[in-house]
Design a protein around this nucleic acid. Sequence first.
DNA 1: CATGAATGAGCTTTCATTCAT
DNA 2: CATGAATGAAAGCTCATTCAT
Lengths: 203, 203, 203, 203
Amino acid sequence: MRKVDQIKHEERRQQILQSAALCFARDGFRGASISEICAEAKMSSGHLYHYFPSKEAIVSAMTEGSLGRAAEHFERLMQSPDLIHAFITEITKAKRGLISQSLVFDVLAEAGRNAKLAEILRRHTIALRALLADFLRKAQVQGRINSELNAEMTAAVLMAIFDGARTMLVRDPQLDKGDSADYLELLVTRFLTLQDSGQSDKG
Amino acid sequence: MRKVDQIKHEERRQQILQSAALCFARDGFRGASISEICAEAKMSSGHLYHYFPSKEAIVSAMTEGSLGRAAEHFERLMQSPDLIHAFITEITKAKRGLISQSLVFDVLAEAGRNAKLAEILRRHTIALRALLADFLRKAQVQGRINSELNAEMTAAVLMAIFDGARTMLVRDPQLDKGDSADYLELLVTRFLTLQDSGQSDKG
Amino acid sequence: MRKVDQIKHEERRQQILQSAALCFARDGFRGASISEICAEAKMSSGHLYHYFPSKEAIVSAMTEGSLGRAAEHFERLMQSPDLIHAFITEITKAKRGLISQSLVFDVLAEAGRNAKLAEILRRHTIALRALLADFLRKAQVQGRINSELNAEMTAAVLMAIFDGARTMLVRDPQLDKGDSADYLELLVTRFLTLQDSGQSDKG
Amino acid sequence: MRKVDQIKHEERRQQILQSAALCFARDGFRGASISEICAEAKMSSGHLYHYFPSKEAIVSAMTEGSLGRAAEHFERLMQSPDLIHAFITEITKAKRGLISQSLVFDVLAEAGRNAKLAEILRRHTIALRALLADFLRKAQVQGRINSELNAEMTAAVLMAIFDGARTMLVRDPQLDKGDSADYLELLVTRFLTLQDSGQSDKG
DNA sequence: CATGAATGAGCTTTCATTCAT
DNA sequence: CATGAATGAAAGCTCATTCAT
């Protein structure tokens, strides 16, 4: 019985976080109110506080969860035969639309002010980067990518590119998604595959 | 008399926008209150509304101004002998710290919800991209970068990389700035200078 | 439990409306502030908004309620053996004093600007007029009043006189209430009972 | 020169009062702001305070002026061959529309709270009533109206009817203006012209 | 005579949070 | 487990009024 309760408790928590994610994406961390989240989760405000001690805790838990799920998604994508293509496509052709993208920027913005959030973001960033670096190292061993590249730094740069891809859509929604995906892919491919010939003629 | 007044009026406006930028960067668009901005601008809340009709107008004007100044700065950077290096350095080694960076993410986040802000962002994005594309075309003529690249799309991708560079700092403040700058530079340089050999072996 | 709650909710609503009526009568619709009403209703401002979505809604509900109660009172008066006398006395000798009268004028004034209020006022006016016209028609059948009079128009004119009676007190509080009541009664009585002789020699 | 100044000063004052009347009619005494009046009078707020020491003073002066002008208008109407008809027509068929009517109700409402306004209203009411009573007494001498009526009280009652006529339009704007005017005229005519036969059979 | 910059109290409304039931 | 009544601080904004120029 105790166990069933705990499971149900966790289910409710997840339901709240899911509702919160929706509201935060729609209206931002500050713009979304507790009562808006309660309405979305079909729950009274009093009851919501049985699951989370404060709004900030919801923000933290929700960010933690979202980043966690993103990492899982990422891991699954890493099984794909063409990782880069899969990633770029995922981001540039996002089905979930701009609103869901906003959440990422909200987290980035808030991380600059909220230490706890910054810590969560950093932890996930490092974990993801490690995962990616590992993958890169294997590819280097297989000779599929430039072996001179530092895997850790390369992973960091790749993540930056994925973030940058996300901004393209927001900055100009009318940009052709296919073209931008192609160019981003080209960018990454060139970066990864070629030997550094050293003769770069910078602009 | 009239002219002096108008100048003073404009000065006051700018002073408010400057204070607003500070407060918004510190606490976000929603988190920063009018009275906080008033305190920063040493001005009563009533008087502030002689200069702007609403908080939203301040957000818009402040964003417009910031993006405008960023574009000017960008144009100046374009005179530098090594554009890419100058850019990357500018972003990764930003002296103004994380707080000022947060503003960019706030704008990106808010643009997903606020149509007016989205329009401002898009306008500046397009203008900047045009500037950059122009620059790239000239470099192509001079044979300094790959002539097969579509200048417009390349410019868009470069801007994405600059945005991505900004996220690196936020995601992991302990990342070595020098290294990350070097890798980003390498990334861009390879992208711009090399001919598409077609034989890329993607991961 | 549910039912008790609902009853208590309605009681609280009525308490607010009663407090609002007092405050509005004392200071006018615009002059009375939400916090004044809250103080009167012994309730925090935040909580008041659980019962009404806006001040305007309070004004509307309060007007609706007041006019409703006035109509009930009116219906009770219609049972009295001498309707006209009862009415005139009611208005000219109002115990509730000038302040309560002011509310009527506030409604009339505001109805010229607030469409919702105008609609409420009109609805109650028409209902009351119908009631009064019905009464007049019965009196006509009984031969107690001039049968040539159009009951509907006569009812409208009677209501105008009742309103006019209300202004007398405000215009000159020192006017003898007994005398003015007598004269108004005479006015109405003559109007209702006499046949139109057509030979009126107007001034 | 001094005299010209004074004339211009008075002209400006009147211009302000006229603008104020418009704004007050449109938005009520509290609803209309000083800056709204300034905009209407094409004058800075600072300058407006050279002519009136406070908003309340404007309300008072404006009421005084309006009532004064109404009295003059009334006096002119008294020259007409058919006073009652002229009056009723004037009120029920008002060209100036509901907004201007609202002002009367605003004054009546505010008089219940503002002693100074009450005094102004009372003074004008008494003056007008005296004028009307005088007129009635002459008509009694000429045998045109019932000589048993007390002229002063009759005048008061007539004024109440005029006020009542004004409410008809506000209470139900769809009421037929012609019919209501006819009935009001009938009401007044019967009241004034017939001998009190004493046999009234009240309802 | 005339302007409009400047104030600060006060307005309506919202919100995160607590608590009695 | 669940509700929603209740709070009070704080939000964005308006306004009558004053004052330096």
